[in-house]
Simulated assay, not measured.
Amino acid sequence: MTFRYDFAPTPFGDALVVFSDEGIVNFDLSEASDPSVPWLLESISTRLHEPPVPDPGAADELAHLLDGYFAGKPVRFDEHVRLDWRLTKGFHRDALEQITKIGWGETASYGEIAVLAGRAGAARAVGTACRLTPFSIIVPVHRVVRADGTVGQYGAHPEYKRYLLDLEKN
């Protein structure tokens, strides 16, 4: 299988998008301010056991959806793009699939997602699934909050999470 990559603009900078023949494998905001960082491509190459090749224009459809999303339109990405879940297995995948069901402007706690994913008491594992998601924004892990309603983290950028939640509130 050949993996391809392109970049999609976001308010946080260009995000790396990696595709397989099955769909989007990875949407990474972790270094959106400089997605050309070689370690980012090396990291995804290691996880896929093959380096993705550049494919300019591959992310155009996703970029169009992101434009709408960041303009305040409620977009369910999973209804418009195919996801290739190969980088997520077991309970983490179950949790992320439950997270796709959280609606625009809504939130759920880590504990609530754990129950829905079939493992009550596994709130920390849900947090790990959110932290390790290969689908930032596309799977709306930013909608998962602490039991007391506080925002919590979003990788190394909790300000992104606050921005996304505020965008969806308005």
Rank of each mutant, 00 (worst) to 15 (best):
T2Y: 07
T2H: 08
F3T: 05
R4L: 12
Y5K: 03
D6I: 02
D6A: 15
P9T: 12
F12M: 10
D14N: 12
D14I: 01
A15Q: 03
A15S: 11
L16K: 03
L16D: 04
F19P: 06
D21N: 06
I24T: 03
F27T: 07
F27D: 01
S30D: 14
S30F: 08
S33D: 11
P35C: 07
S36Q: 13
V37Q: 14
V37E: 15
P38D: 15
W39H: 15
L40A: 11
L41K: 11
S43V: 00
S43N: 12
S43T: 13
I44N: 04
S45C: 09
E50K: 14
V53G: 04
P54E: 05
D55Y: 15
P56K: 06
A58T: 06
E61Q: 13
A63K: 04
A63G: 14
L66A: 03
L66D: 06
D67R: 14
Y69F: 14
G72W: 05
V75D: 00
R76S: 08
H80F: 11
L83W: 00
R86I: 10
R86V: 14
F91Y: 10
H92T: 11
A95Q: 01
A95I: 11
E97G: 02
E97R: 15
E97N: 05
T100W: 10
G103K: 13
E106P: 02
T107Y: 07
A108T: 10
S109A: 00
G111H: 07
G111L: 06
G111C: 06
G111Y: 02
G111F: 04
E112Y: 03
I113Q: 04
V115A: 13
L116W: 10
A117R: 04
A117Y: 07
A117I: 04
G118P: 00
G121T: 13
G121H: 08
G121E: 13
A122L: 03
A123V: 03
R124P: 00
R124K: 15
A125L: 10
R131L: 12
F135S: 04
S136R: 12
I138T: 02
I138H: 05
V139C: 02
P140Y: 05
V141C: 14
H142T: 00
V144T: 07
R146H: 13
G149H: 02
G152C: 02
G152T: 08
Y154G: 02
Y154S: 02
Y160H: 12
K161E: 01
L164P: 03
D166R: 15
L167Y: 01
E168H: 09
